[in-house]
C-alpha cells in the first residue's frame, strides 16, 4: 500500500495544475483531501521553479517572469531533481530553453557554468614559479591538470557583456543578446567568479589542455583556428586566473 500510495501521490504532485484525470490518490478521497493535495502540489512545483529562478537569475530577467515561470514549471514537472541537492539541479534546463529562446538558453548555459564553478572542489593553483621549475626545452610536452572550477563555455550569442551589466545593475532592463561567437572561460580564483572572454583560437587550445593533451597539441589546435593566437599571453592568463591546478611531463 505504501509504495503504491507514494507512486500515486508523486504522479499527482507533478501533474499540471487543473489536471484531474489520472491524478487521484486513493488515500486522499473527498473534497477536503483533494483540496489539501493542491497545497503539496503548489509547494513542490513552485519551490522547484524557485530553485531554478535562484540558479538562473539573469536568464529570468532576460525572459521576464511570466515566460520564465511557465517554462520552469513545465521543466520541473517533466524533470524533477534526481537527488536532494538543489545546488546541482538545473543542468538540463538551458537545453530546454533552446526551442523557446536561443539567446536566453545561452545565458542559462553561462549561468550554469558559473554555478558549477562556484560549487566545484577546492584546489591550489599552479604558480608561475612551479611552472618555471620545468626545463624550458620540455615545455612543449607539458600536460596540465585543470582547476576543478574551470569551465569552458561555447555559445552562439554574445551574452557575457549582458551578464556583466546585469551583475552591476540589478534593475537594468536587459535587451536580447546578439548572435555571435561567445567563447568564455569561467574560473574561481580565490573566492570570486571570473568570466574571461577568449580571443579567437584560445578556446580550442584551452579545450585541448582541459582534455589532458600536451601544450604542443594545444598550440596546434589553437593555431589551426587562429594563426595569430598569442599562446604566451594565453598561458599567462591561465596562470594569473588560477585555471590550472598542476603540470606534469
Amino acid at each position: 500500500m505504501l509504495e503504491a500510495f507514494q507512486a500515486q501521490m508523486q504522479r499527482a504532485l507533478l501533474a499540471p495544475a487543473g489536471e484531474s484525470r489520472g491524478t487521484g490518490v486513493d488515500l486522499a478521497p473527498g473534497p477536503v483531501a483533494e483540496a489539501r493535495l493542491k497545497i503539496y502540489r503548489a509547494n513542490v512545483q513552485q519551490s522547484l521553479a524557485e530553485a531554478l529562478a535562484a540558479a538562473f537569475p539573469i536568464t529570468l530577467r532576460l525572459m521576464g517572469v511570466p515566460a520564465f515561470r511557465a517554462v520552469a514549471l513545465d521543466f520541473v514537472r517533466a524533470h524533477p531533481p534526481a537527488r536532494p541537492q538543489l545546488a546541482a539541479y538545473g543542468g538540463d534546463f538551458p537545453a530546454a530553453l533552446v526551442p523557446l529562446d536561443a539567446g536566453a538558453a545561452d545565458m542559462a548555459r553561462l549561468e550554469w557554468a558559473v554555478m558549477e564553478a562556484y560549487f566545484a572542489a577546492d584546489a591550489s593553483s599552479l604558480t608561475a614559479e612551479q611552472l618555471a621549475a620545468f626545463p624550458p626545452g620540455d615545455y612543449a610536452q607539458l600536460r596540465f591538470a585543470p582547476h576543478p572550477a574551470a569551465r569552458l563555455v561555447w555559445l552562439g550569442h554574445d551574452v557575457l557583456p549582458l551578464w556583466r551589466q546585469a551583475q552591476a545593475d540589478e534593475d537594468l532592463e536587459l535587451s536580447a543578446p546578439e548572435s555571435g561567437v561567445g567563447e568564455i572561460l569561467v574560473l574561481r580564483p580565490a573566492e570570486g567568479i571570473v568570466c574571461v572572454a577568449l580571443p579567437p583560437g584560445a578556446a580550442a587550445a584551452i579545450q585541448s589542455l582541459l582534455d589532458g593533451e600536451t601544450l604542443e597539441q594545444a598550440a596546434v589546435a589553437g593555431l589551426a583556428v587562429e594563426p595569430a593566437l598569442d599562446l604566451q599571453a594565453m598561458l599567462h592568463m591561465l596562470l594569473a586566473q588560477g585555471a590550472l591546478a598542476g603540470a606534469s611531463l
Partner: peptide
C-alpha cells in the same frame, strides 16, 4: 520526499500503519 529516483523538495505525509 519522492520515489522512483525523484526528489520533490517537500516533506510528504505518510500513512502511519504497522507496515
Amino acid at each position: 520526499t519522492g520515489t522512483d529516483g525523484a526528489y520533490l523538495n517537500d516533506l510528504l505525509p505518510l500513512p502511519l500503519t504497522a507496515h
